[in-house]
Design a protein around this nucleic acid. Structure first.
Lengths: 344, 344
DNA sequence: ATGAAAGCGCTAACAC
DNA sequence: GTGTTAGCGCTTTCAT
C-alpha cells in the first residue's frame, strides 16, 4: 500500500488559532465563545466567525482539566441477574437518561459490572475522575456498592427503592411496585377470583419484594388466603416451574399474579400444559408490559411502569445534585398503571 | 444546615504528591507507574508503594490532553426505528461491546440519535475529540452519516452490512441474515410446505432486505412461487396486519417466514383470529430468538443470531484500527442458526 | 537511572 | 473590554 494518507493532515484548530484569526488574544476568544466575561459585540462576532470558519471544536480534555469537571456521568449496570438483558427495561432506562443528559450537554459513559472482577474495575472507574456522578441500575438489597461510592464523595442515584433515609450524596428513583401489584390483585378480586397465587421475582431485589407485598396487602384486606406464593428469578422458566408446583399445592387456584411479564409467559405455558383455560379457569396478570405481552395467547393483562420516565428522573436528580442543589427529598416514586387485556 | 462538610477534604493525590512521598521526581514517578522508560526496581517499588498508600488515581483528563487520545469510544445508536427498544438486541450488543473494551481499558460513551437535532448533536459529539473511534448501530440504507464521520478521520465500525468496499476508515459487522433466512425457509420446504409467505422488516435496513432475499433464494431454487411477501416494521402490529392481508390474497398459504420474532408474534395472533392452527394449518418461523419466543403458543421456531458476539467483534475491529492495524478485510459476517421449536 | 523543563489546550484571575 | 499570565496533571524529550 502507498502509505497512510493522513486525511486529518491539518491539525485540529485550537483556541489559539481562532484567536489569531480573529485578531484577538486567547483569553478574549475564550470569553467570546463560552465564558461569561465582558466582550464587545464586534469582537464576539469576529471570534464566532473565526471559529466557524476554522471548524473549531474545543478540546474537552483541556477544558475538563482546568475545570475539574468532566461533563460525563456514568451509568453503572450492576447486573448480577439477567433481567436487563431479557426485557427491554435497560434500553428504556437508557433512553430516558440520555434524553435528560443530552439537554444539559452531559455525556453518558456506560459500565457493566457482572463479575466480581468487573465490579472492582467499575469502582476504580467511578472513582477515577472520569465521571462527575453516577447512575446505578439494578442493585441487589445488601449490596454495599452505592454507599461505598457515595462515601467517596461521588453523587449517586440508584434505580430501585432504598431506605427512606439514604446516605449523604445518595438518591433513588423507583416505580410504585407495591401499588401496581395492589391494582393488579384488586382487579382479580373484583372480578371474582378467590384463590390467588403469586410467582414473585427475587426477594433481594426491592421490586420483587414490593410486588409481593402489594399482593399480600390486597388479599389480607379482602380476607383471602395469602399462602400461595413462590419466588424465583424474573424469567420464563421460573414462571413455568413455579406454576406446576402451585398447581400441585392447590389444583383449584383461579388466578396467578406474576412478578414480571416473562414470568407470566411461563405461567401461561404451564397452565396450557395442565389443561387450564385462561382466563376462564385461571386468570393471569403480569408486570412490566413488555412488547411481547400483547402477543401472547391470550394477550396479557399487566402493570405498566414508566421506565423511560424513571431514567429521566434519575438523570434529573443527578444533574440537580451536580448543580449544587441536591433534590429534597432525595428520592422519587413514580406511578404504575394496570393495563387490562384478556388474560384477566 | 451547618454548611457543606466536604468529605473529600483532602484533594485527590496527584502524581506530584506520589513523587514527593517516594522521594523522586514527577518524571520518574510517571515512568515507574506506566511509561516504558528505564526505572530501577528499588525506585519503582517505592513509587508503587507511595501510590498505593495515597490511593493515587491518574487524572484522565490530563493524560488525555497530553496523549491526544481519550481512551473512550462512542456507541452511536442511530435509532430512527424502535427496534432496539422493543427487543433485547441493544442490550446484547452493549454487553458484547463492553466486554471487549473493558479488557482494553477503554470506556464506552453512549449516544442516541433519534431526531434530526439529536443527529446533529451526535455528529458534533463524535467530532469533538471526546472519543477515539465510533461504533454505529442500526443504520438505514441511504444514511450518509457513517461515511461523513469516517471522512473526518474518525475510525468507524457499523453494525449491518454495507457495500463490499467500505470507505476508508469504515468497517462493518453483520449476522448472516440471508443464510439464516435460507435455513428457515429450507426447513419449511423440507417439511412439506408449498405456499410460503414472508412478512419482512424494513427494506431500507440491510437485515430486512437480506432476510427477504434468503426467503426468495430458497423458493426459486425449489421452483416454488415467491409472490407472497409484504414488508413493514420489525414489530408486532406489522406482523398482525400483514398476515390478514396475506390471508386474503391466498387463504391456502401454509407457512409464514417472519422477519423478526415480534413480527412472528403478530403473525401467530392473526392466524389465531383467522382460525388457523399452528403448525398444522400454517407453519411460522421467526428471526432473532428473543426470550419471549419460547413462551409463545406454540413456542416459536426461529433463527438465532450471535448478537453479543457481533458487539464484541465490532469493538475488536475498532480497537485493532486504533492500534494502527486496520482489520483486513474491513468486515465480518457472523453465522446464524435455526432453532426448531413447535411452530414449524 | 534520574531530574529538569517544556508543553498538551483551556479557563480565570489579574492587570491595564 | 482586552491582553497577559498562571496554572490544571500528566508524559516525554533532553540533559546529566
Amino acid at each position: 500500500m502507498s502509505g497512510d494518507v493522513e486525511v486529518t493532515g491539518r491539525a485540529r484548530p485550537t483556541l489559539e488559532s481562532v484567536a489569531a484569526r480573529a485578531g484577538v488574544s486567547r483569553g478574549t476568544a475564550s470569553r467570546a465563545l463560552g465564558g461569561g466575561g465582558p466582550v464587545s459585540p464586534r469582537t464576539r462576532a469576529a471570534v464566532l466567525a473565526a471559529a466557524e470558519a476554522l471548524g473549531y471544536r474545543p478540546n474537552l480534555a483541556a477544558r475538563s482539566l482546568v475545570l475539574g469537571r468532566t461533563g460525563n456521568v456514568g451509568l453503572l449496570v450492576s447486573e448480577s441477574d439477567d433481567r436487563l438483558f431479557t426485557d427491554p427495561f435497560f434500553a428504556a432506562i437508557v433512553r430516558g437518561v440520555h434524553g435528560e443528559l443530552a439537554d444539559a450537554g452531559i455525556h453518558l459513559v456506560l459500565t457493566l459490572a457482572q463479575t466480581e472482577a468487573e465490579r472492582r474495575r467499575a469502582v476504580r472507574f467511578a472513582t477515577s475522575g472520569h465521571v462527575d456522578g453516577l447512575l446505578l441500575i439494578s442493585v441487589r438489597g445488601g449490596d454495599p456498592l452505592p454507599e461505598a461510592l457515595a462515601a467517596q464523595g461521588l453523587p449517586v442515584v440508584l434505580s430501585g427503592r432504598r431506605s427512606a433515609e439514604p446516605a449523604a450524596g445518595l438518591a433513588w428513583v423507583d416505580a410504585d411496585n407495591r401499588d401496581g401489584a395492589r391494582q393488579a390483585v384488586d382487579h382479580l378480586v373484583r372480578t371474582g377470583r378467590r384463590r390467588i397465587a403469586t410467582v414473585s421475582g427475587p426477594a433481594d431485589l426491592a421490586a420483587g419484594r414490593d410486588r409481593m407485598a402489594g399482593w399480600r396487602d390486597v388479599l389480607r384486606a379482602a380476607g383471602l388466603p395469602d399462602d400461595l406464593h413462590t419466588s424465583g428469578e424474573f424469567d420464563l422458566d421460573s414462571g413455568h416451574a413455579a406454576t406446576h408446583r402451585l398447581l400441585e399445592r392447590d389444583p383449584h387456584l383461579d388466578a396467578v399474579f406474576a412478578g414480571s411479564d416473562l414470568i407470566a409467559l411461563g405461567v401461561l405455558q404451564a397452565l396450557r400444559e395442565a389443561g387450564r383455560q385462561v382466563p376462564d379457569d385461571v386468570a393471569v396478570v403480569g408486570f412490566d408490559d413488555i412488547p411481547a405481552a400483547r402477543g401472547s395467547d391470550p394477550p396479557l393483562t399487566t402493570v405498566r411502569q414508566p421506565v423511560e420516565a424513571m431514567g429521566a428522573r434519575m438523570a434529573a436528580m443527578l444533574l440537580a445534585r451536580l448543580d449544587g442543589t441536591p433534590p429534597d427529598p432525595p428520592w422519587a416514586v413514580l406511578p404504575t398503571a394496570l393495563v387490562v387485556r384478556s388474560s384477566a
